[in-house]
Amino acid sequence: MSQVLAFSNHDDPVLDAKSEQHLDWLCEQIIANRFLPVPPEEAVFVGDGDYRAIGAEFLGHFVRRAGLMPDHDVLDIGCGIGRMAVPLTQYIDASNAIYEGIDPVANGIEWCKRTISPAYPNFGFQTQDVKNALYNPEGSIGGRGMRLPFQDGAFDFTAMISVATHLPPEEIETYCTEVFRVLRPGGKLFL
């Protein structure tokens, strides 16, 4: 069975002290690394704040709260312009894991394909033409008809950051049904 994870106030450490220290170091390196891509400010269509810092913060949550491991295959629904993908390039193992990002905004996906995928070939990005009043009003697929373009049981971890807040409840149900279809047994959804 797969799991849906939510933030909680428990104090149980997920990582040992050495792993915690390494993750803190990695997140600091991601924030400071001027060679990691950052989209032009005018291209960022969702979210504000420091692109790298927010991505690094979520990487910490993925690892600490959800147990994301470097060899996990990751699906990022609503990947936008790669805010979660960029820090994951520094964490997931290029030889043993893949990342797939999907989003209805073609411009963001095109930036990710041009900027991230050439340097990180295990990172793929796809536009999914799902209709959304805010992000893709002319989309050809209704939210209730959305189907993820992946095989059953293809991923260990799925992230949906700032997606459910933009969907009506009946579409959230469709998304969750699809997520659980593409997750492997024991896979996790970070929502």
Rank of each mutant, 00 (worst) to 15 (best):
M1S: 13
N9I: 01
H10W: 10
K18P: 00
K18V: 07
Q21F: 04
I31W: 06
N33T: 01
F35G: 03
F35R: 11
P39I: 01
P39W: 04
P40N: 11
Y51E: 03
I54Y: 11
A56E: 07
G60E: 06
L68H: 11
H72A: 06
H72W: 02
D76F: 07
C79Y: 15
I81K: 09
V86L: 04
T89D: 08
Q90I: 00
Q90G: 02
Y91A: 02
Y91R: 04
V105C: 05
V105R: 15
V105A: 12
G108Y: 11
S117H: 12
N122S: 14
N122Y: 13
Q128H: 14
V130F: 12
K131C: 14
K131H: 15
N132Q: 13
Y135I: 01
Y135G: 09
E138Y: 03
G139I: 03
S140L: 10
I141A: 08
L148G: 06
L148F: 05
F150L: 02
G153A: 10
G153P: 02
G153I: 00
A154E: 10
A159P: 03
S162A: 15
T165L: 12
E173R: 08
C176S: 08
E178T: 06
V179T: 10
V179E: 05
G187P: 09
L189F: 14
